[in-house]
């Protein structure tokens, strides 16, 4: 079952950078889909289009469709705020807000006007367990979030995107600033999260792409070169450009 279907999607920034051309991509539900390739290929742009975060950027034109459960989210009538609650996002650098650990998590509820204390309390624990952070912070939820280590902060951001029970999680190089152990923890929790969520990951290295991908899509200079099942694409790519990138000849 495909959660997100991208049909002939093109986007162009007004300064001409990182545009995407005629992208066709099926993102299956309950799988981890990896978008990889050299910098400037448009991976982040595609990611930010799925939750319409590009609305505020200087976009010159968009064409095509992005279907989320069959609904075109590029449609002007789509409720963007609601969409973003269904599509969580984690960024390359952990952005913790200057509050306590707990309030960082519950802030989304606060903004949405949810006041059910029991629901909130349960959600805090669930999201922290899911992001493999619960054991480390359960006794100090009221401490400032900024006191956490970088890896913990990134898992807190993951928890924050999970707390409102989105259907899709977008991750833009979530482990680029983390040490190998924290990276492993994040990757492991992503594997567990697949059961309940659809995950789209832009990895920060080919190795991470190969380790984590169920489906992999290779982007080069705004074009989607090749899509395939992760294990196959990384061992036996059909395109020579993909092959050479995976072998580390460029990028």
């Amino acid at each position: 079952m495909d959660k997100i279907v991208i049909e002939d999607f093109s986007i162009e920034y007004s300064d001409g950078t990182e545009s995407l051309r005629h992208i066709n991509l099926h993102i299956p539900a309950n799988q981890l889909t990896v978008l990889f390739g050299p910098a400037g290929g448009g991976k982040s742009t595609l990611l930010r289009s799925i939750n319409r975060l590009n609305d505020l950027a200087d976009v010159k034109s968009t064409k095509g469709q992005i279907l989320f459960d069959g609904i075109n989210i590029l449609d002007k009538k789509v409720d963007v705020i609601n969409l973003r609650r269904k599509v969580g996002m984690v960024f390359a650098r952990p952005v913790v807000l200057p509050f306590s650990i707990r309030r960082n998590l519950t802030y989304g509820f606060e903004l949405a006007g949810v006041r059910d204390a029991v629901l909130i309390e349960e959600s805090v624990e669930r999201s922290l367990v899911q992001s493999a952070l619960w054991d480390e912070v359960k006794d100090r939820l009221d401490e400032p979030a900024i006191s956490l280590s970088g890896g913990q902060q990134q898992r807190l951001c993951l928890a924050r995107s999970l707390i409102q029970q989105p259907e899709v999680i977008l991750l833009d190089e979530p482990t680029s600033g983390l040490d190998p152990i924290s990276t492993l923890k994040v990757e492991n929790s992503l594997q567990d999260l697949k059961q309940d969520y659809t995950i789209v990951l832009v990895p920060h290295s080919v190795q991470q792409a190969a380790r984590t991908a169920d489906t992999a899509a290779f982007f080069l200079q705004g074009e989607l070169i090749e899509v395939g099942i992760g294990a196959e694409l990384f061992t036996n790519p059909t395109e020579s450009r993909t092959q050479r990138y995976i072998e580390g000849r460029y990028g």
Binding site: R84, F91, V95, L97
Partner: peptide
């Protein structure tokens, strides 16, 4: 910009 992105991504309106 990351602050704004983070707020928007958890469902804040532009005004919020």
């Amino acid at each position: 910009r990351s602050y704004r992105d983070a707020a928007l991504a958890i469902g804040a309106t532009r005004w919020q």
